[in-house]
Design a protein around this nucleic acid. Structure first.
Lengths: 342, 342
DNA sequence: GTTGACTTGACGTACGTATGTCAATTAGCG
DNA sequence: CGCTAATTGACATACGTACGTCAAGTCAAC
């Protein structure tokens, strides 16, 4: 049972190679009757186009653009590195990748960066930006132009994306909650929750997941209102310190986003770090080091290498109009502790 | 900066295409001087062979064989399924895969299954069997015949394998130890350790990791001698029950291998399941269900889909004599709880 | 029956590589 | 210097697909 080729299709359908080609590549000038025959033959023989040979023949180069938030953020930095590494690897041959950094908080900046793409020849876009009506429209326009679009890390549920590459943040928050609840030895206490901004849907979902689990499974614990520092690290230190003073029963800290370095600094200065159960998000140099030093008890992470490769694979698949292999594209919620960090 | 092709190499080296081809494919009849020139040109231009085009031209089919332990074992079953799924997926084109099941405890059976491979045309082998001197020799013979060999799940450190696809079991045991230690609320108690056989190096390493971590980080806990049931599930139930009677201070159970279903049955019948912290290995229908019912607190797992795809990718890479992308082939120690199970 | 539009098939070239054949060149040796 | 053997290059064919060109075919409307 060799794999069928276009020749087999032509023979089976009783037409010429040219006609098969016209049907497969959706060119005009084929009578419906013959088109049907070809499609039937494809079905019957289970033909799948050899994309490698096809790409070879058409000298295809996949032109992908990734739009990531600018500014200092270790997670975004590692993601950027992973994207570059993945596109350099042999796996992702024939891919030419551009990474753009934009002020993700400024919808106008995001949109204008996407509008540019419509003019150039771009096959696929990966987006890590918050969803706004403007962004939604810009994505719709990209889709009109036949560009494949995937949401990266942050879902864009109301936009016409082809796929979301990232984790279920509600489940991530729940996971963090269980870890905090089970790691805390005290019979009661409160938990500090920190993030950059609850405006980002990731943080919001994580917070919801946390509260769900604490409320149902750990009623003796209490989650404090979310501390948001909105990029202002000075404020972060201050608020942490005052929270520590205000809540002497503090037993845990949940950091839902960036700013782990500053957060740890603040906790360190008041000497309570060792007594607190700390759960943070994302594996970065800071969190890795903190794990090794037992300053962070667990990290909830998504494998950036997997994110990057998955995004590239999905974009290719969408360009080629090929099924994706869901099992491989499922991004897991990783729990990293000192012992399984490597 | 287009990718260089063989033509570019020929021009750069000042020789003909034929000569370049002779060098690249290690054919005879090239003067050392010219061979050097070609190699230098390859270096200088950063040429990498387009394996897809090459495979197209030589009509290559990768012939891989996997040898897995026979007998009822949910983990092996899921692995088998993952292998089939992976080879069916588009990623692994041009791969023809055979899965053999052998009595892994019988070195003779394993070896004879490997000897057969030398006669047929096989490009690569994935092995999940215990290491014995006979197996070691059989692998050496495979390597002599130019067959790529990877160890799957269980490392074969003293054999000439090209690669090990699996996790660091010492670290896995340590991870289990930390989870047990931190999840147990009681101030002291003992931990039951169960496996099929400590003869398997995986179990042994996990046990060592567990003991390391319990001894150093949780001195108030005590790990009991390993219960081995050697495939005898009746014995498993019995021993569990008598252990429960003998150790009323039991606070945790660590199941290092197969047999989770029977173990849980035994724990269930004596009604102590809810009070115990249970950590088991591998995501299977049994452990998934037990996680959902809060009967198991955490599962230490390796993603079988990842194992399968990694094994196939590595075998291909070894056949093509191409570098592997280590970041992608690193199998992580997954910690699965109810909240991040999906 | 003629015209024109649409449809079809035959064929050539290309992508980057592999592999074979054969003649031409070169090196090594006496 | 001449001979033989080793080395080299030119060329052809192929893999599975894409795509362009052109002549021949079909069909309906006039």
């Amino acid at each position: 049972m060799e794999k069928p080729t276009v020749r087999d299709i032509a023979r089976e359908a009783g037409v010429s190679l040219s006609t098969v080609d016209r049907v497969l590549n959706e060119r005009t000038g084929v009578r419906p009757r013959n088109a049907e025959r070809v499609k039937a033959a494809v079905q019957k023989l289970g033909y799948v186009r050899d994309t490698h040979a096809a790409n070879l023949a058409r000298r295809r180069v996949y032109n992908f653009v990734f739009v990531l938030p600018e500014g200092s953020n270790q997670f975004v930095d590692t993601l950027r590195g992973a994207l570059k590494e993945a596109s350099a690897s042999q796996l992702t041959d024939r891919v030419s990748m551009t990474i753009k950094s934009v002020d993700a908080e400024d919808p106008h900046a995001v949109v204008s960066s996407l509008q540019v793409l419509n003019r150039h020849h771009v096959d696929g876009v990966g987006l890590m930006v918050p969803e706004t009506p403007q962004v939604r429209d810009a994505i719709a326009r990209l889709k009109e132009n036949g560009v494949a679009v995937v949401a990266l890390v942050s879902d864009l549920p109301h936009s016409e994306c082809d796929h979301f590459v990232g984790v279920d943040n509600l489940a991530a928050g729940r996971t963090a909650g269980v870890l905090l609840g089970r790691f805390v030895k005290a019979s009661y206490g409160s938990i500090l929750v920190v993030t950059n901004s609850l405006g980002s849907r990731d943080s919001l979902e994580r917070r919801l997941g946390l509260d769900e689990v604490i409320a149902s499974d750990f009623p003796s614990l209490r989650t404090l209102p979310t501390v948001e520092f909105h990029g202002d690290v000075e404020r972060l230190s201050e608020v942490i310190l005052s929270a520590l003073r205000a809540h002497p029963d503090l037993v845990g800290v949940y950091s839902m986003g960036p700013g782990n370095g500053r957060l740890l600094d603040a906790l360190r200065t008041c000497g309570k770090l060792r007594d607190l159960v700390v759960v943070a998000h994302e594996l970065t140099p800071t969190t890795k080091q903190a794990l090794r030093h037992n300053e962070i008890d667990a990290v909830i992470a998504q494998n950036v290498g997997h994110l990057a490769r998955s995004a590239l694979r999905v974009l290719r698949a969408k360009c080629d109009d090929v099924q994706i292999f869901m099992a491989q594209e499922q991004i897991r919620i990783d729990i990293i502790m000192r012992e399984n960090l490597r």
